[in-house]
Simulated assay, not measured.
Amino acid sequence: MLLGGCRGSPSVPVTVSTNKHKVEVREFSDAVLSCMFHTEREQNPRIEWKKKGKDVSFVYYGGLFRGPFEGRATIQGATVTLQRVTQEDAGEYRCEISAPSDSISLGETNVTLKVLVPPHTPSCEIPSGAVTGSTVQLRCRDQQSIPPATYSWFKDNQPINPPRLQNATYLIDSHTGILEFKAVAKEDTGKYSCRASNGVGPPKMCEGKHMTIEDVNISAVVAGVVVVCLVIAVCGCGGFLLHRNGFFSPGHRGRLSDVLTMSLSSRSNVNYIPPPQEPQDFKHTQSFML
């Protein structure tokens, strides 16, 4: 592999190439971005590396690494090695060779860097309980892994195989991480956990959680419905009888009011005892002469 600037035949102008246009490395490892060139006559071509984005930024310019790459990158010929790359380093890079003495004075090649992230412990949403016959979803998600993780479910530490039949009682989506029970049964009670994997690092599993499936108490539901119906029936019959006897008619309401008034009046007369009168003080109204 030719790493430096070498003069080719006089009929060949500057050419730039790479032996790997797409580079994939794990996070916090080193990434080698290769760049090879030939010049026609130029003895000291200018080497530049740039990173594309919203704005083009310099990686290597004027014989020095710039910005976040300063102090953590090396160059050999025109090939650059980035050390301990992170997601911030992922993107498209361009190697440019300037040869003013050549008939074609500029050549370039592009290299795309993808930084792979191993799975993290996924977040799992597992309900603690449900009733038989209900639809239940268990969710599993790892939002940090690159490439995106795929998911598998376990019950009591045993793998749950994807259903083969269309009328299966449950569904598993390995890409979204959803385990759905169309109608849970008591035998679905158990401890559930989920594993995320993407082939970059070791798989990670969330902590298992127990889900209990219980039957609906039919007797209690029926008894409650019967009691409510009886209360409604009694209230309805009582109201009908009172209305039939004229309890709610204007005349009856007037008579009832008179009776209540008389009762209150008689009670007032019976219970009322006037207070005793105090003796009047004797007052002189006229003087007597002896």
Rank of each mutant, 00 (worst) to 15 (best):
A90C: 04
S57D: 10
R66C: 05
G62M: 09
G62E: 10
S98Y: 06
I75Q: 01
Y61H: 07
I104Q: 03
E96K: 10
K50G: 08
Y61E: 12
K51F: 05
D102R: 00
G62D: 01
I104D: 02
E108F: 15
S103C: 03
V85E: 00
T79C: 05
T86F: 07
A73C: 03
E96I: 15
G67C: 09
V85G: 00
D55C: 02
L64M: 11
E70C: 10
L82G: 04
F58P: 03
F58A: 15
R66Y: 03
E108S: 15
E70Q: 15
S101K: 15
T109M: 08
P68C: 06
A78F: 09
Y60C: 06
G91P: 04
G77V: 06
T74K: 07
V59N: 06
G91V: 02
S101E: 13
K51N: 07
D102S: 05
L64E: 14
T79K: 03
W49F: 12
R84H: 12
D55P: 01
V111P: 10
V59I: 12
F58Q: 14
L113T: 06
E92L: 14
S103K: 06
Q76W: 11
V85Q: 00
T74V: 12
Y60P: 06
D55A: 13
A90I: 04
G63T: 10
G62R: 10
D55G: 08
G77F: 09
L64G: 03
L113G: 07
K52Q: 15
G67K: 14
R72P: 07
V59Q: 07
C95G: 03
Q76L: 14
C95P: 04
E108A: 15
G53N: 09
I75P: 00
Y60Q: 08
P100R: 00
G62A: 10
G62S: 09
E96C: 04
G77M: 07
V80Q: 02
E96Q: 10
A99W: 01
Q83V: 06
V59H: 05
E88C: 00
T81I: 14
T79R: 04
S105G: 05
G77D: 05
I75D: 00
A99Y: 05
A99T: 14
E92N: 11
